[in-house]
């Protein structure tokens, strides 16, 4: 589904990604771990098409389509979803109006008609239960005045509504208490099918207690230096990032 080869990217002339190779198949969950500044969030931003990041080398394909040639909204319509680490607030735009607009755009791209209000509200209600988000929050302005946990759950609600092929969760666990973490994780587990895939970017292992990844990759200094299964995450948790950095220095 997602096929990244030798991806290099820099921001304001500073190299961040230095050759990423990653292959994600439908039905899989991949976790990407790494210390601060290793390039985890950059990878997410580059895939989503954030303008500040320049891709200097390499390729990224989603279901055979060249992501790097598409505008951010086209990538989204093709089925790439990014759950933001810091969801932005948009005053005066109701969550519900925003969701309807986004869903209509994405459905149109898939050749589907706009949902009637009734259908839309029914869908929203179902998905809302999935992430245990209070109804009052969908009528409020988008993310405005939401708590950290509410913002993250709202990201998962959008994920559930937009039904992407590939979802990238960028440190969705950061700043979440244990209950919110459980809700977010259970949402993801329920949304998981054999036709979609998840890339979970996280600093800590704890989210992976709830969402069991098929693969774990360790990102360090702009490269994936180690890949494995969920045991790798546990080992990392136990030994700390120093183990990796020493390991890395050792192999050079």
């Amino acid at each position: 589904m997602l096929n990244i080869t030798n991806l290099h990217s820099s921001i304001e002339g500073k190299k961040i990604l230095k050759g990423i190779d990653l292959k994600v198949n439908a039905g899989e969950i991949h976790a990407i771990m790494g210390p601060n500044g290793s390039g985890k969030s950059t990878l997410a931003s580059v895939l989503a098409g954030k303008a500040e990041y320049e891709v200097t080398e390499g390729e990224a394909f989603l279901d055979g389509k060249n992501l790097l040639e598409m505008a951010p909204e086209e990538r989204a319509r093709e089925g790439l979803f990014l759950a933001f680490q810091y969801p932005v607030e948009i005053p005066g735009v109701s969550n519900i109006n925003f969701l309807k607009t986004a869903l209509t755009e994405i459905r149109a791209h898939r050749g589907l008609p706009e949902l009637t209000s009734k259908e839309f509200l029914k869908l929203l209600k179902d998905k809302q239960e999935l992430v245990e988000l209070k109804s009052s929050l969908v009528n409020r302005s988008l993310n405005e005045g939401f708590s950290g946990g509410e913002k993250k759950r709202n990201e998962i609600l959008q994920l559930a509504m937009l039904d992407p092929k590939l979802a990238i969760l960028d440190e969705t666990d950061s700043g979440l208490d244990i209950d919110a973490l459980r809700i977010v994780a259970s949402g993801v587990n329920k949304l998981r099918t054999e036709n979609n895939a998840f890339v979970i970017i996280t600093h800590y292992q704890r989210l992976l207690d709830y969402i069991i990844p098929d693969f774990v990759h360790i990102l360090y200094d702009g490269r994936i230096i180690k890949s494995g299964t969920k045991e790798l995450a546990l080992e990392l948790e136990e030994k700390g990032y120093d183990w990796i950095t020493q390991h890395e220095t050792g192999t050079v």
């Binding site: 098409g49 951010p72 909204e73 933001f84 932005v88 735009v93 755009e105």
Partner: peptide
């Protein structure tokens, strides 16, 4: 804000309008 809306499939024009 614009990028956030782009990432949900909404183009620049509609994002600004919203």
């Amino acid at each position: 804000q614009i990028f956030y809306l782009n990432q949900r499939g909404i183009d620049n024009e509609k994002a600004v309008a919203l």
